[in-house]
Amino acid sequence: MANAQTIARKPGRGLLVFKWTLLGPLFGLLLFILPAFLLQLYFSFHSWTIYLGSWWDAEFAGLGVFRDVLTDSRFWWAALRSLIFASLSTLGCFVAGFALAMAMHRPFRGHSLFYAVFILPMLTVPVVIAYTFEMLLFQRGPINGILSTILMTNVNVTWLAQPPIAVFTVIMLEIWNWTPFVFIIMLAGLSSLPPELDEAAQVLGASRWRIFSEVQLPLLRPVIMLALILRFLEAMGEFPKTWALLQGGPGSATETVPVYLFLTTWQYFHISRGAAMSYLVLIFMILIVLLGIRLLRREKQTIDAIHAKPGAGE
């Protein structure tokens, strides 16, 4: 009888252990994150500038700090610059990363060496990239020299001194730095595609382009979405290269949200404004993530529907 009771109780205990296995780390994580999160919340509802007094004496400002940020044209300009930077660099990373993944999809001699070389930029510290390229990008530096040799004309581009070119330069550095990230994701996506579909299309006489556009690309859509969303979120937060190379300049051409946030918080010492700004950026990022999850879910449903069709996979 006792044995029967123990057996009956066991599934319940197992479930409990399973629940706590999941909930334990979650609570731990919350305990770790929550104080900073709450403190940030406190700052954003109070008006605290470091040199004007202690944080616990800061005046309650309600939504005043948020209102200040939302009516600050400099913040909106920074947001626009961040969006342009993140969109273009994400696009660039995607195109370059996907192209590399396509080239590396099939094994060939020296595959591993190329793979290692291609992921190298991602392993380089962004500040190091900034300082290295600063030396390469001088008007009389090696990059203009190489371009002059290739183009057989004197190239004198001032890569870091003119606003549109400086923005282009930082975008190019971001693409150089993070193309490997997209490359790895897309390579994993390509490797997970069932080879039968590819082979069947070949047997039916489909061209390489048709196989790519009508077989591989639709199946890769969830992976593409994931790569684009992750890269965009990461690019929105880019700070080290932009700061080390240009500090928001020339003029204010590269004053993106992270740069303005840093200036507000750690150069102007307006902790409350910085906190409110961070929350607004966080809300924007959460919206992008939710949109991304929705799109991914839709893609998954579409693919599931294809698989569920009678005759599919036969």
Binding site: A161, Q162, G248, P250, G251, S252, A253, Q267, Y268
Partner: peptide, 16 residues
Amino acid sequence: IEFQDVLGKHIAEAYI
């Protein structure tokens, strides 16, 4: 720093 950076930013913007 803020007084100066704001001035410096605008001067730099005018310069370019």
